[in-house]
Design a protein around this nucleic acid. Structure first.
Lengths: 245, 245
DNA sequence: CGTATTTTTGAAGCGATTCAATGGACGTGG
DNA sequence: CCACGTCCATTGAATCGCTTCAAAAATACG
């Protein structure tokens, strides 16, 4: 944690250290020798804003672990509608599909902030798992977590009204990418109305109306492409459908 | 495959053989010694219709692999609404949460047909994965597949009208539990209108109206708690929003 | 300062829900 | 075997939440 003092925060070193790698959920519990092997097998991949790591429909070749920046995973429907699946934060992986054969990527992964990732080819990562079973165990845990999250979102999508879904989304995003500032919790993502709509399965019009109403009540602060939760508890009240005090 | 000749089809043997185990997705590629070890560590668990293997909210102790029968996984919302997540068919697992510490089960797993499952405690299964990395690899593959399925459903829920969602659901169920009969493809699950509603995030009224319309057009056959797809291609047309011929 | 992008607001229309009431299937006991 | 009760499915009518489309306002950027 104190090691990186010399490295400018906004320009990450090209090759992350073993120490950094050891923090990542998927490599927890590995000894130094194993981490060295993992790191040696990796290549780094940088991406500018708007650049895509992987594109929906392409054969899945590589598995990625995000080191810094932010990546947005989205799908386009056959009809051309876009759906945002999730945002990837540092320490999280994407492109897991690569480990299970030559399937196409189901999503497009696009950097929304300058990003740096480690990448392994599917075959190589396969070998790493077989040689270091702990990785497989960690991977299952991460994926199980992800399944649970999607289950929750699916339940929300089926049972809750738009307003509650948006409230839940904001709370989830705050948990994932929230930063404390003096007015409240800033969601540290470039986040447009359209993005929120595509994550809750509604239209940007409805999102706009809802956020406007909340801003009027002082629950959130809204700048272009950035949101601040001023009264998270009020948002929780909406999310849980409690009577508005 | 030919080994079980002496066992009545409707009363599965109490301890499944190694041959059966070797077919299950999560144990693919294991040698006989490993399978023996896996089997020795397992206990069997039978359940009557309506009986629950695990209950939502209970601490996750065991991991299950269904051998025969059918199990329904559902969640209840804090408000008491029920949501059906999926049906488990023989060869599929559930309760994966047990491998990642003492979290509560996120779902309730209830037998809808007399069921038999193998069960391992979380710790034991953990050990099996560490000793046989292939299990971890297979597990990641299964979970990645599941994530993909939930992603697809989430996309559907957000972008498609009810009619299309129901069509997609029926096609998915047919793929998972379909049985060819002379009138078409029978979905071999005890499936009420309420179940369909809870899987598509709509009401049983809307489901009923939709199915009635389809039955009138000869697309499906509908008996109490059981459905037959008579013209699967017509359902595909609905699911893909093609002009009705 | 002008243009492009994002956000807001208004009004009309529709799809789906809600509630109530009826209709039909199944199993059980007389 | 028929009559009954229960559970499940259907149907109709009223209502509402959200979408849709149009247009204006606000904000960023060159």
């Amino acid at each position: 944690m104190s090691r990186k003092a010399k490295v400018p925060a906004d320009r990450p070193s090209v090759l992350p250290s073993v120490e950094v790698l050891a923090q990542m959920g998927i490599f927890l519990g590995l000894d130094e020798a194993a981490l060295d092997e993992v790191l040696a097998a990796a290549r780094t991949a940088a991406a500018q804003v708007g650049e895509a790591y992987v594109c929906q429909g392409e054969p899945a070749r590589s598995f990625y672990l995000l080191i810094s920046g932010r990546v947005r995973l989205s799908q386009v429907t056959p009809e051309g509608q876009q759906v945002v699946m999730r945002f990837v934060s540092p320490g999280e992986e994407f492109g897991i599909v690569a480990v299970l054969g030559r399937l196409p990527y189901p999503v497009t992964a696009e950097a929304v902030e300058p990003a740096l990732a480690l990448a392994w080819s599917g075959e190589v990562f396969n070998g790493l798992i077989l040689r270091h079973p702990q990785i497989g165990l960690n991977g299952m845990a991460m994926l199980a977590e992800r399944v649970k999250e999607f289950q929750d979102r699916l339940r929300e999508a089926g049972t809750q009204r738009v307003e509650r879904r948006i409230a839940n989304l904001l709370l989830r995003l705050a948990r994932q990418a929230g930063r404390e500032v003096d007015e409240g919790v800033l969601i540290d993502l470039p986040l447009g109305r359209q993005d929120l709509a595509e994550m809750t399965g509604t239209t940007l019009f409805t999102v706009s109306r809802t956020l406007s109403a909340w801003e009027e009540r002082g629950i959130i602060g809204s700048a272009r492409k950035h949101l601040t939760l001023r009264q998270p508890h009020a948002l929780v009240a909406v999310a849980e459908d409690l009577p508005t005090s």
